[in-house]
């Protein structure tokens, strides 16, 4: 014990405790991650940028060699879907015009568009117990990015991938939909009843999340799309989250749950959009 406690070891331990305390105080009083976290993030930024670029380059090379056949099949399927969607789009345009006319007729306020902030993924979390990534935008006025904690994050295709849980001047940490702390109200398929989608630790490694406590009468089938329900001000309604893979009954026999797969593996995402403002008026 005497060998452990000396002037030098007390100084070293105090430095570590002071660093942790400064972060704790910054987090709880100022809402920022503290000077040490900010400095360490800034120092690691160039390294992470290089590693992300290299990883992307290797993925592209691997993709062009091994995924050619799959890409051809996907391309054909997408062309078919595009034709269907073009038809649906024409119908939707007509409906939109009707909707605008009726809103004006009833003096309803005009719907605002979502405000998005484009960002790039600079680092994935190295923990096997949490699912998160860091983006290259923070709250700094210099970069003119109004990102704040709680903002939803989606891909360029409008698929919700997570929520901002911490912001520094130049970066923001996004907790993904797979993380155990994530939960959102969703609609499934054509049903109008909202249920909760949440991250589950057992499914996290496979890239799935869960729809829990599905009501007895609610039809949920494999292949159904899961979209955010909106209406509570956390996420805008209608954002795609994934598709149902399988539906199970709980071991207790009470209620059902379903596993949901993201449309695209999360680790292949490079470009995201932070939803900084939206209007949830129906």
């Amino acid at each position: 014990m005497k060998a452990l406690i000396s002037k030098k070891s007390i100084v070293i331990a105090s430095v570590a405790v002071l660093i942790a305390l400064s972060t704790f105080v910054s987090l709880n009083i100022f809402g920022s991650q503290g000077p040490v976290t900010n400095a360490a993030n800034r120092l690691s930024r160039p390294l992470n940028f290089v590693s992300t670029q290299l990883a992307q380059m290797f993925e592209q090379i691997y993709g062009s060699i091994h995924r050619y056949e799959t890409l051809i099949e996907t391309n054909e399927r997408l062309l078919r879907e595009l034709t269907d969607l073009q038809l649906a789009h024409r119908e939707a345009e007509a409906l939109r015009a009707d909707n605008e006319f009726l809103r004006a007729y009833l003096n309803l306020p005009a719907r605002r568009e979502m405000s998005n902030e484009p960002a790039t993924v600079v680092r994935w979390g190295g923990s096997n117990f949490y699912s998160s990534f860091v983006i290259n935008k923070g709250y700094s006025n210099y970069w003119n990015s109004p990102i704040s904690v709680g903002d939803g994050v989606m891909t360029e295709y409008g698929v919700l991938v997570g929520r901002v849980t911490a912001v520094t001047a130049t970066t923001a940490t996004v907790t993904t939909v797979l993380d155990t702390s994530f939960a959102a109200g969703v609609f499934v398929g054509d049903g109008g009843q909202s249920i909760t989608a949440r991250g589950d630790f057992a499914l996290m490694g496979s890239g799935y999340f869960m729809l829990d406590n599905i009501p007895d009468g609610m039809p949920v089938l494999p292949g159904d799309h899961v979209v955010t329900s909106g209406g509570v001000g956390v996420f805008p309604g209608g954002l795609l989250m994934g598709e149902v893979v399988e539906v199970f009954s709980h071991a207790t026999g009470l209620g059902r749950y379903a596993t949901v797969r993201q449309f695209r593996p999360l680790d292949s995402i490079h470009q995201v959009f932070v939803i900084t403002e939206f209007d949830d008026l129906l």
Partner: peptide, 14 residues
């Protein structure tokens, strides 16, 4: 380690 886990610097530092 803390930075690698996208966590605020603290727990692993101590």
């Amino acid at each position: 380690c803390d930075i690698s886990f996208n966590a605020p610097v603290g727990v692993f530092t101590v």
